[in-house]
């Protein structure tokens, strides 16, 4: 069964092609490319990716405009029905701004853009995105962002930790994120937002393959379903 995925493109997205290449490499099937102004997603999707970039030039707040674009109503609807949704970097910002994930991504504490490969600890290896990793394993994934400083209030952070919804944690100081959180899951576990770019680590020529397992596991989870 072909893997039916979609990559959303907003004005200012710049990792949408990388995401599409990664999904095609891992699944063998090219994803649908969906424009932000579309009202509907293709039917019977197995996976939706909200890619990185600088949608709407980061106007107002990173992800704020994109989160309120027409296609996001369809993404929110699909997420509610259990379709896996992955938001990377600006995509993570869009998912928090849309309310699909808790918290907010603020300006890096250093005020500097950070662009390097960082070590991440896999905190939750039970989700459909992370089951290809071992809990506690260290993986190396590139980050490239200015607004990756994850913030949520203490009660929310405690709840996320208690429910196993912290998917990845930075192993060194990257951007000032509360509790070094690099990626979070929604309550149902089918929505993951993360600042690091797994689609930039799916080819030996990228300098690493540690992102591969994330996509592979989503594809395998579908095949088993």
């Amino acid at each position: 069964m072909a893997f039916r995925s979609a990559v959303i493109t907003f004005p200012g997205s710049n990792c949408d092609r990388d995401m599409a290449v990664a999904l095609e490499k891992v699944s063998g099937t090219a994803p649908f490319r969906v424009w932000h102004g579309d009202a509907d997603l293709p039917e019977k999707l197995d996976f939706i990716a909200v890619p990185g970039g600088f949608s709407y030039g980061d106007y107002l707040r990173s992800g704020a405009m994109a989160a309120r674009s027409p296609i996001m109503n369809a993404v929110i609807d699909a997420a509610g029905k259990g379709v896996p949704v992955l938001g990377v970097c600006n995509g993570f910002q869009v998912l928090t701004e849309s309310g699909l994930l808790p918290g907010a991504l603020m300006r890096n504490a250093s005020q500097n853009f950070v662009c390097r490969t960082v070590p991440l600890k896999v905190e939750n290896s039970q989700s459909l995105f992370t089951a290809g990793y071992e809990a506690g394993e260290t993986i190396h994934i590139p980050v490239a962002h200015h607004d990756g400083n994850y913030f949520a209030d203490e009660a929310t952070l405690d709840r996320l930790e208690g429910e196993g919804r912290v998917a990845f944690r930075y192993q060194d100081a990257v951007n000032g994120s509360q509790r070094d959180i690099a990626g979070v899951l929604n309550a149902a576990g089918n929505v993951l937002g993360m600042m690091p770019h797994p689609e930039r680590a799916v080819d030996e020529r990228h300098g690493g393959m540690d992102g591969w397992a994330l996509f592979e596991n989503a594809v395998n989870a579908l095949a088993k379903a």
């Binding site: 107002l60 704020a64 309120r68 701004e97 808790p102 913030f151 949520a152």
Partner: peptide
């Protein structure tokens, strides 16, 4: 509440 401010922060 819907756009101009992010009530989380």
């Amino acid at each position: 509440q819907k756009l101009l401010a992010n009530m989380v922060i």
